[in-house]
């Protein structure tokens, strides 16, 4: 991992060269997280680039990205480590005879036990250990970027389990003892706010809130991601999406949907937004039947409001 970041501007530039356009706030968060070695909790509506941020940071810092996707019921076995049970069983089967030979001379139970103990913890050793993302991150030789995605989907217990990792970059495991990070990872946690995270977790993190981008920023994002779209069409589609976000919808169109829409319009060789075109492609932006119907009803008015000159 790159050890020194010169300035916030360096972050912005590097992100821009990867096509991740961000504002000062986001760049400051990455800069500070790397300087202070603190985890970052990223919150915001879905589709504003929370996960992308971790990926861009990994590319910027030239560090491997290790990702842990959280879901209801994720536990230590999925997040930290597991024993390779199948392999253990297979080995015992295969080694049965060998074990028999080894134990052949022993006549009493005690003697057998003693010999077995002499063999060491053969079956609970490195060979049979399956490291999961968190352990991988701690044992990685090169400081990685660790992304704990959608931590709000995990249970409360798992959240508490993360606390030790977040504050000291170490985890206590019954069979292995305390595992400390060889090199401190840069941790990103993302949350869609489906439930309130505990204060204990928030206290340990820097908290970054990414809202939907404003018009200028979204314009730049589209320009960076879908450069083939003409300037005038881009202006139009971005201001249309911005206007949609002000309406009362079940799910507001996210940045990723703006990008999809821009690509669709490109495929349709559109040069200008008109009512028929918007109606045809609205399902790219809106994912609920209700929303589509609401918007279609007021579409004429909305377009006239945006571009009064045309009608």
């Amino acid at each position: 991992m790159k050890t020194r970041i010169q300035s916030v501007d360096e972050v912005i530039e590097s992100f821009a060269s990867q096509g991740y356009i961000c504002n000062d706030q986001i760049a400051t968060a990455v800069y500070l997280a790397a300087q202070l070695r603190k985890p970052v909790l990223v919150e915001g509506p879905p589709g504003v680039g929370k996960t992308e941020l971790a990926k861009a940071s990994a590319a910027f810092l030239e560090a491997p990205l290790i990702r842990l996707q959280c879901y209801e019921g994720v536990d230590e076995a999925k997040a930290l480590y597991e024993w390779k049970y199948g392999k253990q069983l297979l080995y015992t089967q295969l080694l049965k005879e060998k074990l028999g030979d080894l134990l052949a001379g022993a006549d009493s139970m005690d003697a057998c036990m003693e010999r077995l103990a002499g063999m060491g913890d053969a079956f609970y050793s490195e060979t049979f250990l399956e490291p999961r993302p968190l352990l991988q991150a701690l044992r990685s030789d090169e400081a990685p970027v660790l992304l704990v995605d959608e931590v709000d989907k995990a249970d409360q217990e798992f959240e508490s389990f993360l606390l030790e990792l977040l504050s000291d970059y170490q985890i206590s495991v019954p069979e292995l003892g305390t595992v400390s990070a060889r090199t401190e990872p840069l941790v990103f946690l993302t949350s869609n706010n489906t439930r309130e995270l505990s204060d204990a977790l928030k206290r340990r993190c820097l908290h970054l809130y990414i809202p939907f981008p404003d018009q200028a920023l979204e314009n730049r994002i589209v320009a960076a991601r879908v450069p083939e779209v003409s300037d005038s069409l881009r202006d139009q589609l971005v201001s249309f999406v911005q206007a949609l976000r002000e309406q009362d919808l079940r799910k507001q169109p996210a940045v990723s949907e703006t990008l999809d829409w821009a690509r669709s319009l490109l495929l349709l060789h559109a040069s200008e937004l008109d009512q028929a075109l918007v109606e045809k492609t609205l399902n790219v932006l809106l994912k609920y039947e209700d929303d589509i119907r609401t918007v279609e009803e007021g579409l004429g008015g909305l377009l006239r409001k945006l571009w009064p000159a045309r009608s």
Partner: peptide
């Protein structure tokens, strides 16, 4: 304090962004 140290007091907007990261933890 660490945030302010590493960002400095020069750029107001950036200081605001940085302090907001460390001090205010929901929307």
């Amino acid at each position: 304090l660490q945030v302010a140290d590493s960002l400095g007091y020069g750029d107001r907007a950036r200081l605001k962004a940085g302090l907001s990261l460390a001090l205010a933890k929901d929307a």
